[in-house]
Amino acid sequence: MSRITNIFKALKEKNKKALIPYITAGDPHPDLTVSMMHALVEAGADMIELGIPFSDPMADGPIIQRASERALAHHVSLSHVFKMVKIFREKDAQTPIILMGYANPIEAIGAEAFVERAKASDVDGIITVDYPPEECMQFTSLLKEKNINSIFLLSPTTELDRVKLIIEQTSGFLYYVSLKGVTGAANIDIEQVKSRVAMIRKLTNLPIGVGFGVKDAATAKEVAKISDAIVVGSRIVQEIENSNKDNLIINISKLMKELRQAVN
């Protein structure tokens, strides 16, 4: 069983929800990423979603776009991202790490090499934003062979038949995108999320994470009532953007604790 599945099992027994912060690897500086990851775990993160910087992040709003630009200014590549995870693992062998990114950097090194290296760095799950399941069957099976979870997105407009197809390809958890839009966009409609999540639950026992529109502790609290995991991205990246290297760790830890409290 994967780390991700174990965490969900353990949390369920305690009747708790998983809190998953997102940061972009290398933002604001590659030397800070690993300590930020540890700080987030210490402040209450159950897993970490680590963004692979990309020059053309089509599904991201301005906040995460800027994070990618900051990371790329330091030439952060996939090799750096794998290295960061490896260093993180020296002190933390429990917390699942999910890489989130776009197809092109993966294809540039090749799907097989990517999966090999992800395994070697002890990565737990992969979200490839612009890989719908039909276009990456081979990639998904390579990941499966290495026991790395493939996490796919579901959107508010995904048709029922497609939801079934996506469930078949997904392992670890399903990522429900709570709004029509890019990351960090407008307020989410909790009632709508609620009814969609209820519909998805009828089709699967996979845990369901909700993300893209969780902007603050209050929203996180509402989302926690209906989902198994809450993904917070833009809000954390914004905190990173607004901090300097002296207060960065303090600020994101404080925010993470607030979110943890709200979700509990």
Partner: peptide, 14 residues
Amino acid sequence: GGVFVAETLIEALD
């Protein structure tokens, strides 16, 4: 070719 987009666009493309 193909369809390499986030899930949020799939329905509109369909």
